[in-house]
Amino acid sequence: MDFLGILSQTASWILRPETIAYALATMGLAVHFGYGGLLNFGQAGFMLIGGYGYAISILSLGWPWWAGILVGIGASIIFAFILGLPTLRLRADYLAIATIALAEALRLIVQSTMLDDVTNSADGLGGYHEGFRSANPFPPGTYGFGPWTYNEAELWIRVFGLILLGLAIWGVWALMRSPWGRVLRGIREDEDAVRALGKNVFAYKMQSLIIGGILGTLGGVVLVLPSAVVPQVYLPSLTFFLWTILLLGGAATIWGPVLGTVIFWIVYSFLGLFLPEMVNAGWIPGVTPSQMGVVRFILVGVALMLIVIFRPQGILGDKRELSFNARK
């Protein structure tokens, strides 16, 4: 077994576009759930809008790459309104149902042959990289060391992603320490109480849904920057990975989503490499390597359960929260 190779590959996941994308999208979930108490089970839908908005603007409309990002943001704001207007006045559960349903509907629409000439149905989209790559400020060459060795294009994607992530972290931090964030956290605890204090609860929830959605969209953009838009990526399981990350890191924390993403990808990629290798090395008889590869999904599920039971506030969450048994 090539253990060093596994470790090296695992280490590379600390800084991959996928890692940055998941961190961004999970920051969005933190704005929704961690601070606002909104149950969004459709973050994959916002990521899909980011990916497709970016690619379609470039491929079908011929717009520059940065305009593609803006299109994605605009579309996600519209999507947030479609989700929020009917459900945010109702109990929290209705938003959860609407988000998971609409996110799946979006995925099925882009996969259908109806829009084949725009979305290329199940094959997804590719070949939209020229604009972004020509904006690369780094000269050709090899950068970094060890598992983190990149060519100029790979470096540019990572730097760009990190800039977005840095802005997101600053933005969420600035919002949540402000009186606006105080109102939002109050709504998480009890929206009637906040309403009785004269705050327009619906408007705050809508703003939270939009901001978290935009972060999901930016994550979706970063996710498609390296290679292609693949519709099968945006399954509900993507959303549930983000939820695992959020609860792992700490739902109502600034750095929780980042830390959670890094841990998630390290464990997830390590298991993905290590489990099949265990079969190949003959340690586990009676299963094929690909069957063993599926076990990591089971382990992620078990991990999620353990987190919720034993550390519901997450790694970075306030310890005091635990003593009051979280909310309700």
Binding site: S178, W180, D190, G198, F324
Partner: peptide, 28 residues
């Protein structure tokens, strides 16, 4: 309806009217 996971002081500050920092754009 005490807001459990907010501090007592934050609970109180939430009660004040007309806070400019509660508007999205000025909050940052």
């Amino acid at each position: 309806k005490a807001l459990s996971m907010l501090s007592v002081l934050e609970n109180m500050k939430l009660g004040a009217k007309g806070q400019s920092g509660e508007r999205l754009w000025s909050s940052i």
